Structure formats: C-alpha cells, structure tokens
Simulated scan of single mutants.
Amino acid sequence: MTDQQEPDYRFTLANERTYLAYLRTSLACYAGGLSAVQFLDLGLDRWPARIIGVALVTAGIVTTAGAFRRWQENLTAMRSGGRLPVTRLPLMLAATISVVGVIGLVFALWR
C-alpha cells in the first residue's frame, strides 16, 4: 500500500472545478437532446430529431459517469504522488457534438 497524503488544496479545488465543468457539459447535453426531440422538426417522421436527441442524452450519461470516475482517479493519483491518468472523455464529447452538429446541418439543408 502506498502512502496517501493530502494534496495541496489548490489542486483539489481545481480537480473539483473540472468535475463540475464536466457535469455542466452533461447537463447541456441532456437539455440539448431533450430539446431536439421536443422542438426540432426536420420532417421524415421526426427520426432525425430522435437520433440527435438520443445521441446527446447518451453523451450526457457517459459524461456524467466519466466525470465522476475521472475525479476519483485524479484525486487518488494526487494523493499517492502519481501521474494523472489519461482520459478520452474530451475526445468523445468533441466527436459526439461534431457528429450531431453535422447530422443536424445535413437534415436542415436537406429539408
């Protein structure tokens, strides 16, 4: 077992701010996804809006879970004096939001 030490409070608070930023992003994904399903009318029996909505809400769920995991891993690494773990969460978010944006643009122009 490695020695655990309390990290500098500034690093702990920075880790918490990052966690809260991920939670805000996940809330935005939830709101965008639910709004897309409710208000986006792209024709064709509304299936494009459903695809966009499901993709955004799923991204929100993954972001919420990933944010908590990342917060825990960072805190553990800081307390043990180890390296901070690498995450692919920002890449997943960027890719999802880009794909959803392209889908929305294609169907908006197609309509």
Rank of each mutant, 00 (worst) to 15 (best):
T63Q: 10
I52C: 12
L56H: 07
F68N: 10
F68H: 11
Q72R: 10
D45N: 03
M78A: 10
L40E: 06
L56Q: 11
P48T: 05
Q38M: 10
T58A: 12
I51H: 03
L42P: 07
W47K: 06
W47T: 14
I52A: 11
A77R: 02
V37E: 14
L42R: 03
L40R: 01
L44P: 13
A59I: 03
L40C: 02
T63G: 08
R46T: 15
G66D: 06
R46D: 15
W71K: 05
G66M: 00
T64A: 05
L44T: 14
A59E: 09
I61K: 00
V54F: 14
L75H: 11
A65P: 02
I51D: 12
E73R: 01
R50Y: 15
T76C: 13
I52E: 15
Q72P: 11
A59C: 04
L56F: 10
V62W: 12
G43E: 01
R70W: 07
V57Q: 03
Q72T: 13
A59R: 00
N74Q: 10
V62N: 08
D41N: 02
F39L: 05
L56S: 09
G53C: 11
D45G: 08
R70D: 15
G60S: 01
Q38A: 06
T64M: 00
V62T: 06
I52P: 13
A55Y: 05
A49H: 10
L44H: 14
Q38G: 07
F39I: 02
V57R: 00
R69H: 09
G53V: 06
I51Y: 10
T63Y: 07
L40T: 08
F39H: 03
T76H: 12
A59V: 02
W47E: 13
T64V: 03
A55T: 07
G43H: 00
F39T: 04
L44S: 14
T76V: 11
N74C: 04
W47A: 12
M78G: 05
Q38H: 09
A59S: 01
G66N: 05
R50A: 15
G43C: 02
R70A: 05
A67G: 01
L75K: 04
L44M: 14
V37C: 13
A59M: 00
A67D: 04
V57C: 04
V57S: 04
A65W: 08
A67S: 01
W71I: 03
V37Y: 11
L42M: 08
G43P: 00
W47M: 12
I61N: 03
R70K: 04
G66E: 12
A49C: 05
A59K: 00
L75I: 11
L44N: 14
G53S: 11
R69S: 11
A67N: 00
G53Q: 09
